[in-house]
Design a protein around this nucleic acid. Sequence first.
DNA 1: TACAAGCGTCCGTGATAACGTACAACCAAT
DNA 2: ATTGGTTGTACGTTATCACGGACGCTTGTA
Lengths: 204, 204
Amino acid sequence: MTKASVPADSPRASAKDPAASVGPRVRALRDAMGLSLRDLALRSGVSAPMLSQVERGETSPTLAVAGKIAAGLELTLSQLLRLDEGQHVAISRAAGRRRSERGGHRFEELTPPLPGQRADVSLHVLEPGATTGGAADPPMHEPGSRETTVVLAGTLALVLDGSRHELQEGDSVTFDADLPHHFENEGREATRFLAVIAAGLRRS
Amino acid sequence: MTKASVPADSPRASAKDPAASVGPRVRALRDAMGLSLRDLALRSGVSAPMLSQVERGETSPTLAVAGKIAAGLELTLSQLLRLDEGQHVAISRAAGRRRSERGGHRFEELTPPLPGQRADVSLHVLEPGATTGGAADPPMHEPGSRETTVVLAGTLALVLDGSRHELQEGDSVTFDADLPHHFENEGREATRFLAVIAAGLRRS
DNA sequence: TACAAGCGTCCGTGATAACGTACAACCAAT
DNA sequence: ATTGGTTGTACGTTATCACGGACGCTTGTA
């Protein structure tokens, strides 16, 4: 009944007013899940007429009900409101990229630190016996950010907030990056792994 | 006067009610910027008493005013609300992971499709002359999501909404994933690349 | 001491968000 | 045609959000 994809009608209708822009998004997500207004009303605890008004942008819901709606869509409110700030393509060339090294730990940022960037990808090489961060470093990221690590070669141990997780080659781990953490290589060969920091909070 | 950091009091106090959790956060951010209630009121266009009530969790602001408050703090509303979604660690083992193949294009999901997942990492291998997606596939993702691709080996061409971008080994590219796009390998050897879908809203 | 200027919060009023109910339009199965 | 069950939306009432104005409070300064 509704266009399930991103509406191409108004190019920059959103951006400024969150209330107006959530509507189409809620509707898109709802019928992407195959839910009726009453279905979502049941799941979210928000009345169906209210949902209708919100979807059409006729009202600006309270954070409370917006949160309920997001929950009904199995999303965080933050996720529901995440409609982008401008489209662009950014290419980061391998040549002339900044490399860092500190005591058996080399790494390289693969993505440019663009404003509005949501995922920061970096490639790490950890020599046998070495650990990331060391002691004095702040080994955690912005509150709310999440890190996904993929082991490309070798073995890796993640120490996260006390507990320890052993990773084999090819394994991946996802965790909240605002907790103190670091990696260790207890193997015999150098370990290569990829780190993805997603959804970090940003200012400026 | 106020704890400047995110309150660690109750483990899952937030998650459900966004309204209650934004309050302390707004206050923390505000006096981190050294602003008074009236300062922020002036910057945001929201009355000072209202700001006070919101900060103390005595009311659940409308998305409209919440957006104004976020703007006054030089944040997007999504960023302002990004302090929830419980903590967990999810490990995806290399063994027993689902692989897919379709005409010269093999790929593998490296991260488990968890609810609330923010970054989806997948490893792709593209044979010479092959393209991803092909013709009938829906080659775009949820509205608002963003994709970062890192070329691990070989060369890769990204066709995004008409325009074409050539990538060398080690290059990375970031773009809005809700635009139609696909990849091509015009080189002589197989290309290995990594795709990170960030801020994707849940699948299936 | 007194004054002024700043702070955060309480008050009363108009605007509106959110609810439950009821309605017209649509489709499948009688 | 006529049901029964959907769908999404219009109506009227209640709850509450959001405002301007006033209050008590702590500062620095005359």
